[in-house]
């Protein structure tokens, strides 16, 4: 494998709250190869967004990175100062957020907003940026770019706005695009269009994409590799094929069980995961999923399972991974 584009090592993030410290991300390590698409899957509060926002220095004021490294282009993102990060954000790493209704400035024409990033980063001259904005609008599938350039965000539908957000994110040709639940706020039909658009852009530009989502369906349709997170830790990671055929962590299986499958309505039963994901107020010493796990043993309550490598680049953090695999097989 070639050198990874982004290599995160032992990332830790804590939030200071009035009732104590919340351990949001605990020793997360992963890497992304150039051109690779990785899906980060997990429930709300599993730390998936937090981990990636921490890399970009976009944590809320009460959050801080307490450990780890994030190597990107020879620099440690976690050690850069504000100005160095501002240079990287939007130029080398683009971000698409969840809600396109809130992310655009209502007082600025959308064309100007797309141009803005290129001008701020001195990526293009005024004239080039203008021409490029028209190209970008066409590329993300907005008809009649010269006319749409002058529109304000309120004149766009949700899907169209998300296209604009994507155009803004890719304007400076970043090598890495972080998509934080880019389809969650959209209609199902529009979701598919946006995913198709991202897929097209990825292939044409050889851009790496990290797709944060709670929707296993979105992740498995779109990504080369899946990372499952729970309680601020990576539970399982595998290439897509392996992941689909041999899911081996009880949490992953539970996630599949809580998906709706309209095709085989006969023998399919919906199995929601009991309980909720609680914020971790103490540094986890045992498997964070154990309280909700149907296969939990006494050992799971006391000992932290480490990520272990199985065949086909399949990493699992579960004491009982072998049993799960053999049972499923």
């Amino acid at each position: 494998m070639s050198d990874p584009l982004l290599k995160v090592e032992n990332l830790r993030v804590e939030f200071q709250r009035s009732d104590g410290i919340v351990y949001a991300v605990n020793d997360v390590s992963f890497s992304i190869a150039p051109g690779e698409t990785v899906g980060v899957v997990g429930e709300s509060g599993s730390g998936k967004s937090t981990a990636l926002m921490a890399l970009l220095g976009l944590l809320d004021a009460n959050g801080r990175v307490t450990g780890g490294h994030a190597w990107f282009q020879g620099a440690d993102l976690l050690k850069l100062n504000r100005h160095q990060l501002e240079d990287i954000r939007g130029r080398d790493i683009g971000v698409v957020f969840q809600d396109p209704m809130l992310g655009l400035n209502p007082t600025m024409r959308i064309g100007d907003q797309i141009m803005e990033g290129m001008l701020e980063h001195h990526y293009a001259s005024m004239k080039q940026a203008f021409q490029r904005t028209l190209d970008l609008l066409a590329e993300v599938g907005i008809p009649d770019p010269p006319a749409r350039f002058r529109n304000y965000p309120f004149e766009f539908s949700g899907g169209m706005r998300q296209r604009v957000m994507i155009a803004m994110a890719i304007a400076c040709e970043p090598q890495l695009l972080i998509a934080d639940e880019p389809t969650t706020a959209l209609d199902v039909t529009v979701q598919m269009q946006i995913l198709a658009l991202l897929d097209k852009l990825r292939r044409e530009r050889r851009m790496s994409i990290i797709m944060i989502t709670h929707d296993l369906g979105v992740a498995t349709n779109f990504c080369d590799r899946i990372i499952v997170m729970y309680g601020g830790k990576i539970m399982e990671t595998a290439p897509l094929d392996e992941f689909l055929h041999n899911p081996a962590h009880p949490y992953t299986i539970a996630l599949f069980g809580s998906m709706l499958e309209p095709d085989d309505s006969e023998d399919w039963e919906l199995h929601p995961i009991p309980g909720t994901a609680e914020p971790l107020l103490e540094f986890p010493q045992a498997c964070p999923f154990a309280p909700r796990c149907s296969m939990a043993q006494p050992r799971c309550q006391t000992e932290m399972p480490q990520l272990r490598l199985f065949e086909n680049e399949h990493w699992i953090a579960c004491h009982r991974a072998e049993e799960v695999m053999s049972r499923a097989g």
Partner: peptide, 11 residues
Amino acid sequence: EMVEAARALGS
């Protein structure tokens, strides 16, 4: 989110 998005674009 608007300001967060602007920051994410490096403003």
